[in-house]
Design a protein around this nucleic acid. Sequence first.
RNA 1: UGGGGCGUCGUCAAGCGGUAAGACACAGGACUUUGGUUCCUGCAUUCGGAGGUUCGAAUCCUCCCGCCCCAGCCA
Length: 580
Amino acid sequence: MSGENRKGVENAQVDPAEKDDGASSNFITHIVEEDLKTGKYDGRVVTRFPPEPNGYLHIGHAKSICLNFGIAKQYQGTCHLRFDDTNPLKESVEYVESIKEDVRWLGFDWEDHLYYTSDYFEMLYQSAIQLIEKGKAYVDSLTPDQIREYRGTLNEPGKESPYRNRSVAENLGLFEKMANGELGEESCVLRAKIDMASPNIVMRDPTLYRIRRKDHHRTGSKWCVYPMYDFAHCLSDSIEKITHSICTIEFVNNRELYDWILDALAVYHPQQIEFARLNLNYTILSKRRLIQLVEEGHVNGWDDPRMPTISGLKRRGYTPAAIRKFCDVIGVARRDSTVDISLLEHCLREDLNVSAPRVMAVLNPLKLVIENYPEDASEMLDAVNNPEDASMGKREIPFSRVIYVEQDDFMENPPKKFFRLAPGREVRLRYAYFIRCHDVIKDEEGNVVELRCTYDPQTRGGNSPPDGRKVKATLHWVSEKHAINAEVRLYDHLFNVENPLQSGDFRQHLNPASLVVLTNCRLEPGLLHASPGAHFQFERLGYFFSDPVDSLPQKPVFNRVTTLRDTWAKIKKAQGATGG
RNA sequence: UGGGGCGUCGUCAAGCGGUAAGACACAGGACUUUGGUUCCUGCAUUCGGAGGUUCGAAUCCUCCCGCCCCAGCCA
């Protein structure tokens, strides 16, 4: 991890950019404030972020993390990080570690409130026994298929299991056998005795415990029986004295069961509040499908810079502050919504515009010879590191007779509104000189391979000449003999349609141009020593990030995080659209 | 077709009976040694629809329409 990232962690939650925009306000903060006013929880505010360690966190989880930690902070409360590790079949320490790292990287601190549902297994087991003793739970010996049949459908009520009225003693004995590993995996389950005719299917005698002969990543082989989400979650919240149990909207139906279990056991009762999960266009935020992309090799792992995972965004070059800002600005509500990815990009630019040093890099080099510049001469020119922040100082960049400019910055037959270089036209080389193009050299196939220009010595530094001549464009450039070579990876949206799930197999909408690798880029020499995990603005091109994994000493690799706003691209597109 | 949730600008989202915030996007313009940044300006006579209550309705009532979630021994 880079020094920059560590700094991000230290500055967590005191980011000045976020401090002045005040506390957030949404329907959940309204509830919290009302509860504070009425003294519902004695003025306490305790939230929790409860991930299941069965995959990597994505930007949707970031919304939940920012919400839960944010509310705790806003009301001087605490936020717990709790791993909801009740299913050993899907969970692993790899995921636990990645989640901790991602939450920390985002800038949040759970202090000493790190919990695992598995730490409560004994208490949960005792609670289950209590439920049995109260006659509110029973061991059902129906097969999985039978349980499904007995559950009924959306329109028809279910019917009661023949095992539903076993005696408390028999249930107690059976449940103990389940826990002792004396029974086979699908031979029976513990179920709550509620109402098989409930219009809410969640309430039709939900399963509380199932047998799993599988080692758990934290409790090893201690348990043969594992609690289901509905049973474990509400009780874990209760044990931790959570006040506001914030979850996503698909759990609305489960709230009735959440309340039922807590009431049945007569224990401390937090309130569950649901909000709509985040959707982003041009990507997918489904854990299951993200796993698929990784396992089928459509991307290079969980931290592929195209992935909407926290680790992917981090590797791409997104900053914690940008993600936090995004989560703040999208708001919290209960309605389904899909946020435009341009908002995420906007938050990133807002952050990097003020913090990223500017630098010149030519991605697709075109050789340019300044014929009236002395053959073997070179000179150093002053350049500011960040026009937004004078304290970032200046640097010197070398100039000489042969330079490289961007291929896109020259057109032999320029269309209207193309301000850049063309035969006979004069432009400014940033921080250097005005140059005018005189000749174009092509290869046998007619490709432009070299430009012959002259420069005006009176424009040194890029300043306008005494005659007041103006120029319509300023180009970035790099001196041929001083430039370093580097690989630059251009990233774009993972999918080429707004909603990849709308039609057909989502994989058929993968954007083939989501990654374009450029290996012949020429960068200003100072970039040779760019430390991995550092941000730059390549002037006129975008924000770039030295890849923290693939960069080698003296051989940096850059990821394009996002482009700059590109007015010319829009004009070009509009001209193309009208056939111009 | 049972139950639940939700419909306010292209996209998010305020609004909580007193006459439609803000952000992104988009479109103009100013400035500019980044076609960047910044700065102005414009962008919902209308809140899914239709009725009703009221001096007054996005907000209350009624009906209708649409979208989403639930039938795992997943979370």
